[in-house]
Each structure stands twice: as structure tokens, then as C-alpha cells.
Amino acid sequence: MIGGVLLEIVAVGLVVVGVAFLLAGTIGLVRFPDVYTRAHAASKCDSAGAGSVLLGLALHDGFAFGDLKLVLLAILVVVSGPTTAHALARAAMRSGRRAWTRDERGPA
């Protein structure tokens, strides 16, 4: 019984952490100055945010066989999210976007 309560605490904790990352990532996406910092913020939503929420949901109500789907989904977002951020940042770099710096207030 205690194990169940502990599992529940971990599950809810993971979801809360995930939601916090999603919120921070979304704020960053809106507020950050250039494409690189925005890609950085947005990729936090995918990997840390959605990943933790999915893992938390998998542990919620105990771990059943069907929860493997959620784990697979978590792996998928953890693989695909950073790849997308990488491709975006690389494309921006290739097309000559300069990174924002404090001195230059580069291209916003």
C-alpha cells in the first residue's frame, strides 16, 4: 500500500515537473530574442516537458502492460524533439542567421 502511495507521489511529481517545463518552454518561445534561444526553449517542452508528463502518466495508477505505449511515446518525443531543434538551428545557421548577443542586440 505504501508502495502504491510512493508510486503515486513519483507519478504526480513527474507530471508537475513536466508541466513546469512546458510552461517555461512556452514562455521562452514567446519571450526569447532569436531563433537559437527559441529553439532551445521549445525543445525543453518536447524532451523534458512531454517526456516527464508521459512517464508520470505511465506510472499513474500503477504500471500496467499498456503503459509501455506511453514509455515508447516518451522515447519518441525525446528522440524527435532534439532532432527537430537541431535541424532548425542548423538551418538558421546555414542561412546566415546571427545569434543574439547582449552587446549587439542582434537580429531579433
Binding site: L76, V79, S80, T83, H86, A87, R90, R94
Partner: peptide, 15 residues
């Protein structure tokens, strides 16, 4: 001539 990113190449092939 822009080479495909090895990361994207690998992940797309993997998925």
C-alpha cells in the same frame, strides 16, 4: 552542396 545533418539522417532512417 549543403550536406544533410548526420543527426537528422540517422534519426529519420531510424524512425
Amino acid at each position: 552542396a549543403v550536406p544533410v545533418s548526420p543527426v537528422v539522417f540517422l534519426v529519420v532512417r531510424l524512425l
